[in-house]
Amino acid sequence: MRRQKGVLGFLESRENFPFTIQGIVPDVVVNPHAFPSRQTPAQLLEAVLGKGIACGGLKKYATPFSTPSFDAITEQLHRAGSQSGMERVYNGRTGEMVRSLIFMGPTFYQRLVHMAEDKVFRNTGLVYPLTRQLVADRKRFGGIKFGEMERDCLIAHGASANLHERLFTLSHSSQVHVCRKCKNVASVIQRSVGNDRKVIGPYCRLCEDRR
């Protein structure tokens, strides 16, 4: 799990999670590579400080205005009777002891609104009148732009039907009126009478036909 976005890569049942000899089961297993890549050592320091406080039964001033040093955090953990904070865990599926020592500690998580339902492609909605492209911004019920690189990926995977649907049916589709007489594009005439706007209908400006 990455702290910045709160994305869970895999959901597992509680009985299959690793557990300690006291029966403690973690809620979230974090990949240690997330700390150097996303540069969030504060999350690890928060877990170390929280574990030292929980094991020692003490209170600590831990607001954003306090900046305890690394030595103060580790000393808090040492006073609680733990040298490194690492624990021996057991495999939840087989019950075998895991050879590697695992660090477990309490950490506060605030879930952000990143739901898959909010990120799917929309079918219909607002488009720019000039380019017929999807409008941006999720607040305006916009869609995700579909460019040339996405097109090439679909072509490489043989998804021609999906490509046709995305580029013609859902993204750039528009309806225009065509004159039955001269086959040119007709326009829709609107007449404003006071505050009321009345739509007369399609009208061809070349042959002046209304069909």
Rank of each mutant, 00 (worst) to 15 (best):
S69D: 14
E150S: 08
R205A: 06
T124F: 07
I21R: 15
G143W: 01
L8N: 06
L8H: 07
R197T: 13
P68W: 04
T74Y: 12
P106L: 07
A156V: 04
T169W: 01
S192V: 05
G85W: 03
R166L: 14
A47D: 05
I21S: 15
H164K: 09
S13D: 13
G9H: 13
E75K: 11
E165M: 13
A54C: 00
K59E: 15
F17Y: 12
E15K: 15
A80L: 06
H33P: 00
G52W: 00
V127E: 05
M1V: 14
I189H: 06
E148L: 15
G142V: 11
L154C: 03
K181T: 11
Q190T: 06
R211N: 07
L163Y: 01
S173G: 00
Y90M: 08
E96W: 05
I53W: 04
E12T: 14
R140W: 09
L44Q: 09
P129C: 04
S37K: 15
P68S: 07
E12S: 11
M104F: 03
E75V: 11
T20E: 02
R205T: 14
N91R: 03
L167E: 13
R111D: 12
S84F: 02
L45Q: 01
Q76Y: 06
Y61V: 10
T124E: 11
P26K: 02
R3E: 12
L163E: 02
V98W: 01
P64I: 10
F70V: 15
T40K: 08
M149C: 00
A136W: 09
G52M: 02
S174G: 04
A34R: 01
S187Q: 08
L58A: 08
P202N: 02
M115Q: 12
P129K: 14
C153Q: 07
A72S: 13
G56Y: 08
T94Y: 05
R140Q: 11
F70L: 10
S84R: 00
S187R: 07
E12W: 06
G194F: 01
F65H: 13
D137G: 06
V135G: 05
N162R: 02
V193S: 07
P36I: 03
S160A: 08
K51E: 10
T94E: 12
A54P: 00
R140C: 04
V188L: 02
K145E: 14
K198M: 07
N123V: 06
I189R: 09
Q83L: 13
F17N: 05
F108K: 12
A186L: 03
L126P: 03
H172W: 01
E87Q: 14
I24T: 09
Q39G: 12
P32F: 02
D209F: 01
Q4R: 14
R14H: 09
